[in-house]
Design a protein around this nucleic acid. Structure first.
Ligand SMILES: NC(=O)c1ccc[n+]([C@@H]2O[C@H](COP(=O)([O-])OP(=O)(O)OC[C@H]3O[C@@H](n4cnc5c(N)ncnc54)[C@H](O)[C@@H]3O)[C@@H](O)[C@H]2O)c1
Ligand SMILES: NC(=O)c1ccc[n+]([C@@H]2O[C@H](COP(=O)([O-])OP(=O)(O)OC[C@H]3O[C@@H](n4cnc5c(N)ncnc54)[C@H](O)[C@@H]3O)[C@@H](O)[C@H]2O)c1
Lengths: 219, 219
DNA sequence: AGGAGTTTGTGAACGCGAGAACAAAACGAG
DNA sequence: CTCGTTTTGTTCTCGCGTTCACAAACTCCT
């Protein structure tokens, strides 16, 4: 707690836990907004929709931030998780492909409120270039290198058609982006050291359809 | 292959496999569009971005649809996966909350092309009710029960603010929807037998931020 | 027909994550 | 100060998913 020594937060947290920390963070924010100062693992687990044993184990990877017999201080734990995830700092983000989805993303307020700042909206179509979305103007895709270099952007969002996704990813990687969130329904290849996460809602719907079909079948 | 007996496709497929089947389906479609008639597990695995052993094991849960020494017939396998997932049939879908994101979803062509048909767009705000999006007109949220009942809708999409998500989900469940895709950043509770999948992009970004922070730390 | 080469389908080993269960620690009452 | 209560942090076990490795099966060529 005293010094930010190199090994203090360097424990490797299981990937499954990392994926849940943002959920806990949001649950804690909701609790804090409701005026709750302290909560037990049972309370927080219920708010986050998980098992309380799992929650405690997850939190134990960060350190011992609770008090036995009492619970967790909401604000303190919230800060600790935020610091561990890295959302106490500001992350510049570029969005490429300002079509239907790109517009929605650019207008999404949930970005900024969680430490992500949209520094540029890029599109290959010149017809888009006069537009201003959520206070940021749409610029040519070829400005990518300059913007990423000037502002040290590490995170890029792809919202182009699938056919363009690999090209966009290549350009992003080439100019230094090391984390990509891909909305295009395409598998993109990147070198080691670059993280890609994909959001594919037709896959989500198909998973639901599978289970739905099975429900109908067994009924 | 002859009769669709009750137990033929009733084997329970592991959840992790179910989540990958749509990826294989898309990879197969891409291969088919490129003129490929036959492919090996190695080819398909590369196109889907997975390990070939994993691919073969996944496919083995569906049955033996390949030929040793040859590979898989692209069209045949594509049909088998589509049938297993349930996308050979038509799934009516309602979308609730036609704001930024709801508009993008309504305009998304990837729905229909995969067997999902948007039968209604619902919003609580009367100011939205005159609008027509992608050929479907926005109707009052209170029409939910009637539409779901008339058209046997099993799948609902929530794109409202987080605060309204639980209420919308409750109403959906009450009128017979058993699968929900939730875009609102909120944990929603549903009874047993109802499937919920959530898509939360601020969580995705936070996961990327965590890894990004660690890269910066160790460098 | 037979053998060489290919590729599938699966058995087995391994590692990770989930959950139950409990000991250690804090707090309050008396 | 001591005891009982509450709740955390951790250990242990179990099951699932991933991956390796190989036998079975198919094709093609001679
Ligand atoms: N709309 C949705 O709700 C939705 C949902 C899920 C997935 N998606 C996927 O997200 C992507 C975008 O969807 P959309 O509906 O916004 O499509 P869209 O066609 O409306 O927008 C795509 C935008 O990308 C731009 N673009 C094309 N090639 C580019 C390139 N090489 N570099 C930069 N910009 C380029 C186009 O000019 C266009 O503005 C698609 O891959 C789609 O499959 C969309
Ligand atoms: N815009 C994005 O890119 C984005 C990204 C990720 C998540 N989200 C989430 O998706 C949800 C929608 O985002 P948005 O940007 O479209 O918001 P929005 O405010 O533009 O749209 C919300 C819509 O829901 C309607 N609504 C509100 N309460 C309702 C109710 N009880 N019943 C029916 N309709 C109701 C509103 O009238 C409005 O039209 C939010 O929860 C947001 O956090 C949005």
């Amino acid at each position: 707690m005293t010094a930010r020594s190199s090994s203090e937060t360097a424990r490797d947290i299981p990937e499954a836990t990392v994926a849940r920390l943002p959920v806990y963070l949001r649950a804690l924010t909701t609790l804090a907004e409701g005026g709750t100062r302290t909560c037990s693992s049972e309370d927080l687990a219920a708010a986050a929709g998980v098992n309380s044993a799992k929650l405690r184990k997850d939190l134990s990877y960060l350190g011992s931030y609770g008090t036995r017999g009492v619970g967790y201080d909401v604000d303190y734990l919230r800060y600790q998780i935020a610091r561990e995830i890295g959302v106490t700092q500001d992350w510049p983000v570029v969005i490429v492909g300002i079509g239907n989805l790109g517009h929605a993303l650019a207008n999404y307020s949930g970005f900024r409120s969680r430490g992500f700042r949209v520094v540029a909206l890029l599109d290959a179509d010149p017809a888009r270039h006069d537009e201003v979305v959520a206070g940021v103007d749409v610029r040519p895709f070829d400005d990518l290198e300059q913007i990423v270099g000037d502002q040290s952007v590490a995170i890029g969002v792809i919202a182009t058609p699938a056919i363009a996704a690999q090209d966009v990813a290549d350009r992003m990687v080439a100019c230094g982006i090391t984390s990509i969130l891909n909305f295009a329904p395409a598998v993109i290849a990147v070198p080691d050291g670059v993280d890609v996460r994909k959001v594919d809602l037709s896959i989500e719907l198909q998973i639901l359809a599978y289970h739905e079909q099975r429900k109908a079948q067994s009924a």
